[in-house]
Amino acid sequence: MKMLNMPVDVIATFNVQGKIRPNYIRLEDEEHTLQTFKIENIVFSREEKYAGMPAIHFCCNIIRNGCAQLIHIKYHVKTHQWVLVREG
């Protein structure tokens, strides 16, 4: 079981309106090797400010082993870090 939010590598686009969209994410597979997944679609996103730290929360789908899988990731606005909140 994953206990903590894990920093992850993400490729994202930033459009002229300042909208952020994560496109690719690098996750560990069962053998602990890194694999890049395309983010197929974003189910929802919302801005958060827990503990006064602004973040954007994305719930999105990736394709893993041929099936769609929901993941939750967050972009921390102040530190420019992406973290994986949970898979599935």
């Binding site: 206990m3 903590l4 939010n5 958060e48 827990y50 503990a51 730290m53 921390h76 909140v85």
Partner: peptide
């Protein structure tokens, strides 16, 4: 504040 940080930012 410690609690919120641990829950929401660190994901404990």
């Amino acid at each position: 504040w410690e609690a919120v940080y641990r829950l929401r930012i660190r994901g404990e």
